[in-house]
Design a protein around this nucleic acid. Structure first.
Lengths: 112, 112
DNA sequence: GTAATATACAACCAAATGGTTGTATATGAG
DNA sequence: CTCATATACAACCATTTGGTTGTATATTAC
């Protein structure tokens, strides 16, 4: 049920974006409510520009989108991308399960 | 059903480790079969030491384990850690779903 | 015992990352 | 119109990353 494949580079960006506690917190906040960039900036002990960069990284990864509302920018989390990563990890689990299945078959054959 | 919580730093390492196509490929290979470090090194167009570093990053993240067998090191994927990341992402989806539920409640109240 | 193999690890380097400050621009308030 | 607010973005810097080569050590093969 995958809508479109992400390129390796896109997948890199998504995982890279999630590899930072501040960015994960931004994703959490923007999934539960729409917030302005300055709301986010107020939440962390770093400069506005630093938070801006984190939001930009998340946006490039497709984990959030920014829409203009007057002079403000509303940041919204993108659950679709989260789901996409989950599907990717499920594919890894499937690889593992197939291996287990092969081992089971092997053991069953041995028992004959 | 989370067995133990991963620290922010551990989560960082896991996502960081997955943010590289070579490392994701190593995870795939080691999930479907046990391979030696040199088997992996033979698979990529980079030095043995570079592959060693990738394996070390995955090991630090808990995505693979290395066990000694004579002079060889057998690398095995760790599906538990994959599953842990999936659970983490499910928590994000839940945040989103709770938001949707709140919005639904709000709309239902409006309709009264 | 000697040679070959498998791995480990240090030192080095270029590029990317994650922060900073400073400046510019667009919008809203009075 | 003027001032304050919200954002954008460039330049800079220290640290980390992802690769390299070179050297050392442990195990296996002959």
């Amino acid at each position: 049920m995958v809508v479109y494949e992400l390129s390796d580079e896109q997948v890199n960006k998504v995982f890279r974006a999630l590899a930072d506690a501040t960015r994960r917190d931004i994703v959490r906040r923007t999934l539960s409510a729409e917030v302005r960039v300055s709301d986010l900036a107020a939440a962390y002990d770093m400069s506005f520009a630093a938070v801006q960069k984190h939001v930009a990284a998340l946006e490039a990864a497709g984990l959030v989108t920014k829409i203009a509302r007057g002079r403000e920018r509303i940041v919204r989390g993108q659950p679709d991308t989260i789901r996409h990563v989950q599907e990717l990890l499920t594919a890894y689990e499937d690889i593992w399960l197939r291996r287990i299945a092969r081992l089971d078959d092997f053991l069953a054959d041995e028992a004959d």
